[in-house]
Nucleic acid binder design. Structure first.
Lengths: 206, 206
DNA sequence: GTCTATAGACGGATAGAC
DNA sequence: GTCTATCCGTCTATAGAC
């Protein structure tokens, strides 16, 4: 995803690019339509011309963000050629690279999931459901074969996601308290691509 | 912290109680001063009488929330009688109990930390800094003694916090996708009080 | 300290000219 | 499709009576 706005993009596209950046960074309530207009260099009225409302525009951006989050998940989880550990390794690599490129995406995702508690239909069953079941079954099989300790799959899901996503959302804390600058932070996240699969293996087996 | 409002509390206290609940649940932008007034049964004008502004009230609530988050951290980390694993065990117990009681606190904390990236002085050095150094030194010593693999302490911090906090902020996802109801969710979080110390030990030693 | 009433700014949305 | 001007509801904050 490019950082700079495409000057030759259509008006509609320019609005979406600015909206995506702002909504992802600051969320719905804190982003003002006037801001989006200014950022994208378009007239305020055009926002309502192309997208019916602020909420309509937000929903589009949210779906795109969540889709980009889920992208690859279905195929990866559903791939019967890969074992559990191979999947975790691919998962860590894929998402950490994604989050290094889009550092505001993790917080947006977390917020969206959290808000789904009160709200919405965001977490309805989707294309990842079937493939997630395949992954869960692989875990159950490892348990049955006594290769790992008995554990509820939700713990594993939580731990994988937490180890991958959480450092990004507490980045400011790590940077301030551990005296890590931006460059070192990225290096540390890259380290985690290798560390997380090893950690999870240890957790499961011991 | 009690769920019901104290009817005999002073006006100032009543405002703070309602504000705490609403701000913690919905954040700054989505909470309206009128809501706080209505919830606490006071007149809207009194909010500005006691606290200069909405922002002023929010800052107080935020500091209290962050203080309650840090409470115990300093003493625990600084306690030279406890080894690393004992500290992690106490940490998991303390915070998971805290978060079960205040389920919106985790998201509030995460949001506050994340916003500190752009903003503020929230993450300034505080009383936990000195004691955190003691904890970090204990880790370094374990590495020096070859009892655990070499690792940057920030990874351990991330992992501990992630394993403890993250499941709470993705609660809605776990509940929908893993068919866990509220009661089972709490049970699962209680399980984690015991599991997390074991997991971290495995991660560090293997 | 507590109330009513309202000022004053902001933000989403649209009418209507071009 | 794009613009200016403006409507109108919402919100924070305060003036001023009691």
């Amino acid at each position: 995803m490019p950082k700079k706005l495409n000057k030759d993009a259509s008006t509609e596209e320019k609005i979406k690019q600015a909206a995506k950046r702002l909504f992802t960074q600051k969320g719905f309530a804190e982003t003002k339509t006037r801001e989006i207009a200014e950022e994208s260099g378009i007239n305020l009225a055009l926002l309502n011309y192309y997208f019916r409302s602020k909420q309509g525009l937000y929903n589009i951006i949210m779906k795109e963000n969540m889709a980009s989050f889920k992208q690859g998940l279905a195929e990866l989880f559903g791939d019967t050629q890969l074992d559990v550990y191979q999947k975790i390794e691919k998962l860590a690599h894929y998402y950490i690279d994604e989050f290094i490129t889009n550092p505001d995406l993790p917080m947006f995702i977390v917020n969206t999931i959290y808000m789904a508690g009160n709200d919405s239909t965001i977490l309805e069953e989707d294309e990842t459901s079937a493939s997630r079941k395949i992954f869960v079954n692989q875990i159950k099989e490892l348990v049955a074969q006594r290769k790992i300790k008995p554990i509820h799959p939700a713990h594993i899901l939580s731990n994988m996601m937490g180890l991958i996503i959480f450092p990004f959302v507490i980045g400011p804390l790590l940077k301030k308290r551990a005296n890590i600058n931006d460059k070192a932070f990225v290096e540390m996240m890259k380290e985690r691509k290798k560390l997380i699969p090893v950690w999870i293996k240890s957790m499961l087996e011991n």
